[in-house]
Design a protein around this nucleic acid. Sequence first.
DNA 1: CAGGCTTCCTGCGCGC
DNA 2: TGCGCGCAGGAAGCCT
Length: 301
Amino acid sequence: MPELPEVEVVRSGVEPAVTGAVVAAVEVFEERSLRRHVRAFGSFVDLLVGRRILAAVRRGKFLWLPLDTGNALVIHLGMSGQVLLRTPGSPGDRQLRIRLHLDHPEHGELWLNFVDQRIFGSMAVDSMQATSDGMPAGFAGAAAGDWSGRIPSQVAHIARDPIDPAFSSDAFLSALARRKTGIKRALLDQTLISGIGNIYADEALFAARLHYNQRADSLARPKATMLLGAVRTILNRALAEGGTSFDAQYVNVNGESGYFSHSLTAYGQQGQPCPRCGTTLVREQFMNRSSHLCPRCQRLR
DNA sequence: CAGGCTTCCTGCGCGC
DNA sequence: TGCGCGCAGGAAGCCT
């Protein structure tokens, strides 16, 4: 469920704690949380212990911590993943899957707990490769370094997200115009545009008055441009509402970090009147998940 | 080869 | 009260 804004909250929250820290030890409590770690590349623990973390970078819903070896610790939260910072000796978090013991030159020793109920999330150490366009691989706050133009290999196929300065609106709109699939499928396709999940897809489609199954190639360019604008507006609003400080992240117990539900006008609002026309909002099954929409404002054309 | 379906997962809430 | 089922959905991988 974490989408771009929630992952960015995690990134900005852990950034001060991990940047410059050395990994002193690693505990893996759940092997399935390493599903995306390629064992042939080396032992997850061995590739981390003794290494210094250089930054915290995000593209879409993917987060990675570049290491002084040139590799990166790749983190994906999946459906239910959380990254929690803890004082050493703290009582164990429920569903704790992996723990990193960090030694930070300023903050001292701390634990980075990877908690994940459904185990759709994962951690992996991966090699890095140059970005195909030579631009910074993702968002890293104000930080920059040799790692900036490099991306973990297993993230290389993920498209840039719409709030990335290097995101090409033109290329996206052109690709959209060639897609024969439904517009919601396209929005959720992380190789086309990243960072959008079920919740913000529904929000953006509501704002743009589009039915989830409207074919992507049927949208006139101005309509597609308007939809992209709606996506950006919604993601930026959630980002503004989700800002969490280092201290807040440190003590955050539930760590769910958002779902900024007060700003949702479509998702989960079935049965409520449409804010535009008063028609009752509905929930429909689509792609094995639910879509929330106004049957009057968002008609299939 | 684009498109789309299946699979992986656990906790919670609901109905009987 | 307790059991079992349905539901939540990100993304890899497979099939058509």
